[in-house]
Amino acid sequence: MNLQIQELATGPAPTASLIVLHGLGADGSDFVPFCRELDFSGVPGLGADGGLRFVLPSAPVMPVSLNGGHEMPAWYDILPVPHSDAPSAPRREDEASLRRAQGWIDSLVQREIDRGIPSERIVLMGFSQGCAMTLMAGLRNPHRLAGLIALSGYLPLLDTTAAERH
């Protein structure tokens, strides 16, 4: 999968990367205003002498089962619990689409490493469905990352996290 990716940088030679994952139905451009508001001018290595690269991928458009199969940008499918229309009912997780998205995010991290950014200077950040993927992929990534920023989400595949964490 070739994800559409927008990038912004705070300087000419980025020394760190922030990969930002949007929520269900949104796209990478949703966080452009947020990224532009952050001021790293006084931070050594992230100001004018280096830079921070914002990587803003857009999830592919796919049918989302919970939304009646309506197609929208989504990192993974959300399955309703059989025989329940209650909004508060627990959800079944679509492991196949979660694992596929984990692979995309692992590839984004590797792409930054290949571009010269040490993994210890890469942060994953996500909102809502992007938060879920940040936690899932970030905790399982084979590289030591600088951090995870989780905004309004949960940890998918919780039962396998302890065995798969890195």
Rank of each mutant, 00 (worst) to 15 (best):
R99M: 10
P87D: 07
G69P: 08
I149P: 00
L157M: 14
G23N: 10
G153A: 13
N141Y: 02
S58Q: 08
M136I: 03
V20K: 00
A48T: 02
V55F: 09
A96M: 06
P82L: 11
M1S: 14
P60I: 11
R121A: 08
E7K: 09
T134F: 02
W75G: 02
F34P: 11
I149N: 02
A9D: 03
F31M: 14
I78L: 07
A9S: 13
N2K: 10
L124H: 04
R111Q: 12
Y76R: 05
R111T: 15
P142Y: 03
V81M: 15
H143N: 13
S41I: 00
D94M: 09
C131E: 11
A132P: 06
G50L: 05
D30F: 10
I113H: 14
Q6I: 12
V61N: 10
L155F: 14
G153C: 12
L139Y: 06
S17A: 15
D114V: 14
D39F: 11
G126F: 08
R144T: 15
P118D: 12
G25C: 07
N67I: 09
A150K: 02
L148A: 05
C131T: 14
S88F: 11
T161D: 06
M1C: 01
V32K: 04
M133G: 13
G116H: 11
E120M: 00
L18C: 10
D94P: 00
R100T: 15
G69W: 04
L56K: 01
G153P: 04
R144W: 07
G51L: 07
G69V: 09
S29H: 11
I78W: 12
D49I: 01
V43T: 12
G153D: 10
I149H: 02
E37C: 12
S65Q: 04
Y76I: 02
P73Y: 03
A137V: 04
R115L: 09
L139C: 14
R92D: 07
V81G: 12
G68Y: 06
L56A: 00
